Simulated assay, not measured.
Amino acid sequence: MQAKLKAAFKEELDKGKGLLASGKNEQAFYHLERAHILGQRNYVPHVISHYWMLRAGLKTGDIQEVLGQIIRIIGSAGSLIGKVPLGNSGRAKVSPVKPMPIPEDLKQYFE
């Protein structure tokens, strides 16, 4: 993972974790989703983003999110062979194989 991408992933992940700790769960998910988009092509960051979404699902009591994240943690192995749907937010409410538009401000990390 290139340094610029790694720093952006860490920044989004840290924002998400901080917001989750302060009870701002929907805002936390927003940043965790952005971390997922940035990290999904690299196995370890991909798993880490799903792990934190799992924790957010547990904190909010969202069983669909919890089960979806468990499945996605296992499915993160797709990043080892380059099989990830770019732009996918990583949330359980979205198909795990659906490509999605990459937010404009994140496109610079994929050029």
Score class of each variant (00 low, 15 high):
residue 9 F to N: 02
residue 44 V to K: 11
residue 65 E to P: 01
residue 62 D to F: 00
residue 18 G to I: 03
residue 68 G to V: 13
residue 66 V to C: 06
residue 99 P to Q: 08
residue 20 L to V: 04
residue 72 R to D: 00
residue 28 A to F: 07
residue 39 G to Y: 00
residue 89 S to F: 13
residue 60 T to S: 12
residue 58 L to Q: 08
residue 87 G to K: 12
residue 83 K to I: 12
residue 49 S to E: 04
residue 32 L to E: 06
residue 76 S to N: 01
residue 87 G to D: 14
residue 34 R to Q: 06
residue 57 G to E: 10
residue 102 I to S: 03
residue 15 K to D: 11
residue 65 E to F: 02
residue 60 T to R: 10
residue 27 Q to Y: 15
residue 30 Y to R: 15
residue 70 I to T: 08
residue 76 S to V: 02
residue 2 Q to Y: 13
residue 42 N to Q: 14
residue 96 P to W: 08
residue 105 D to T: 15
residue 26 E to L: 14
residue 6 K to P: 00
residue 66 V to K: 01
residue 71 I to M: 02
residue 95 S to E: 12
residue 10 K to A: 07
residue 94 V to E: 01
residue 18 G to C: 14
residue 43 Y to S: 09
residue 10 K to I: 15
residue 90 G to M: 02
residue 104 E to S: 15
residue 67 L to E: 09
residue 32 L to D: 01
residue 58 L to G: 06
residue 86 L to A: 11
residue 95 S to W: 04
residue 2 Q to M: 14
residue 58 L to W: 04
residue 16 G to W: 07
residue 2 Q to H: 11
residue 33 E to M: 13
residue 37 I to G: 04
residue 13 L to G: 08
residue 28 A to H: 00
residue 99 P to L: 05
residue 68 G to I: 09
residue 19 L to E: 10
residue 77 A to W: 03
residue 94 V to P: 00
residue 45 P to W: 03
residue 53 M to R: 13
residue 97 V to N: 04
residue 53 M to F: 06
residue 96 P to E: 09
residue 47 V to N: 04
residue 14 D to N: 14
residue 44 V to D: 04
residue 52 W to N: 01
residue 88 N to F: 02
residue 101 P to V: 07
residue 63 I to C: 13
residue 39 G to H: 05
residue 94 V to Q: 06
residue 109 Y to F: 15
residue 81 I to G: 09
residue 15 K to M: 10
residue 55 R to G: 03
residue 12 E to H: 09
residue 33 E to S: 01
residue 36 H to S: 03
residue 9 F to D: 02
residue 27 Q to K: 11
residue 106 L to V: 09
residue 70 I to M: 08
residue 78 G to Y: 03
residue 93 K to N: 06
residue 30 Y to C: 05
residue 46 H to F: 07
residue 89 S to Q: 08
